[in-house]
């Protein structure tokens, strides 16, 4: 199987606070990797580094053989241009915990913005592509609605369509269901599960143990800035070795 994302020795600090203390992670084409762990363990920061929303101090992130965020100049790191970063960000699609839909644009407008301005599609083509993805998340009837007229679950599905429309190699989900009312979680998880079963490569930060267990190929447990344990969901979730993971699972089952 082909490696799509490769993270080596990733270090990230906010001032004196070291949040990621050497992360190594590999995700192959078509794999769904769930990252679990208590808040403050660095899982969201890891995701944000992959999407270049955060800078990191050491280590490397490679997507499809391409070094992300920095250039390697004879062993020394140098930053890349804003334009280059923007291009690399488009390799990954990001779904945010708080949706972050553009409130001044309709559902369709949210999805077409990137298609038109980044991929330079003509309006008609962009609208067609966007309509396809909105249909894909079950919202074709809501395409002219503004975010404020949509429920949380619908907003998040627009967020997913917005990311998918850019044809990313890798989808990143940052606690995509955490801000939702319990009865709305299901519809978003359903879209994510469908995507996973269709072969989309996904890196998912989640508190939904059911998703981690049923939809992912591998589960990664992060603790205090390192990957403490990883493995197939069946083994890791039913037979945890790390004491902190045992603790975490016991607490999340309650």
């Amino acid at each position: 199987m082909q490696s799509l994302l490769k993270i080596n020795g990733l270090h990230k600090s906010f001032g004196n606070l070291e949040v990621l203390k050497g992360i190594d992670l590999e995700v192959n084409q078509g794999q769904v990797v769930s990252i679990i762990g208590s808040s403050g363990s660095g899982k969201t920061t890891l995701l944000r580094c992959v999407n270049l929303l955060e800078e990191f101090q050491a280590g490397e992130i490679v997507i499809e053989g391409q070094l992300i965020g920095y250039r390697d100049k004879g062993g020394r790191r140098s930053s890349i241009s804003e334009a280059e970063k923007a291009r690399q960000r488009a390799l990954t699609g990001m779904v945010f915990q708080t949706f972050n839909l553009f409130p001044h644009l309709s559902a369709l407008g949210n999805v077409t913005l990137g298609l038109r301005k980044v991929l330079k599609q003509p309006r008609a083509e962009a609208e067609e592509t966007a309509a396809h993805w909105l249909d894909r998340v079950g919202l074709s009837e809501r395409k002219d609605y503004y975010p404020s007229q949509l429920s949380g679950g619908q907003q998040q599905r627009v967020g997913i369509a917005r990311a998918l429309a850019m044809a990313p190699k890798l989808m990143l989900f940052d606690e995509a269901t955490s801000a939702l009312d319990p009865e709305l979680v299901g519809e978003v998880l359903q879209v994510m599960t469908d995507l996973a079963s269709e072969g989309m490569t996904m890196l998912v930060v989640t508190h939904e143990m059911s998703f981690a267990k049923d939809a992912s190929t591998r589960v990664v447990f992060m603790n205090e800035g390192v990957i403490a344990e990883e493995g197939p969901p069946a083994t890791l979730l039913t037979n945890p070795k790390h004491p902190r993971l045992q603790d975490f699972l016991a607490r999340s089952q309650r």
């Binding site: 488009a90 945010f96 553009f102 980044v118 917005r162 990311a163």
Partner: peptide, 13 residues
């Protein structure tokens, strides 16, 4: 989050 969502779909500054 607004600027980040814009960046995430590949928009430049």
């Amino acid at each position: 989050g607004q600027a980040e969502a814009g960046k995430a779909i590949g928009l430049r500054f």
